[in-house]
């Protein structure tokens, strides 16, 4: 039973990690590529970490919980890096299939003194 659970979790994790990178390689423009890795990898690595937690907890050494830290850290940081990447791409006017709102272009260069800009 334990082994089946572990096998399923490991396979799900590996498949999602792979699909995330496949999205990165396959999608046509930067903004669509952004979706694959930031989502599929969090659940991919997430379920691998849960598998590892179960694996080490059921051994003689006792409970193992520090995998939670990595999972938590990835779930907090993934949206932040996605947002920053997307913002940088908008700033550089990266080519894209979808039209960015004109508002972004108009205010991006005027609004540098605002608290939001990273300058």
């Amino acid at each position: 039973m334990l082994e089946i659970t572990l096998t399923v979790l490991i396979l799900i994790g590996a498949i999602f990690t792979f699909i995330g990178s496949l999205g990165l390689a396959r999608m046509p423009d930067f903004y669509t590529r952004l979706h694959g890795p930031t989502k599929a990898t969090t659940i991919g690595v997430g379920s691998l970490l849960i598998a590892s937690m179960i694996h080490f907890s059921t051994q003689e050494a006792g409970l193992s919980f520090h995998e939670v830290l990595v999972t938590l850290f990835l779930f907090i940081t993934a949206p932040v890096s996605a947002h920053l990447l997307s913002k940088a791409a908008l700033h550089l006017r990266t080519r894209s299939l979808s039209e960015p709102p004109p508002l972004v272009d108009a205010t991006d260069h005027a609004g540098r003194n605002s608290p939001d800009s990273l300058s």
Binding site: T17, L24, T41, V70, L74, L85, A88, L92
Partner: peptide, 17 residues
């Protein structure tokens, strides 16, 4: 350039896996 940074970002998550 953003594509390459995104690739590096994905690379480190894959390395963790």
């Amino acid at each position: 350039r953003p594509d390459r940074i995104l690739a590096l970002d994905t690379l480190y998550v894959n390395a963790i896996a």
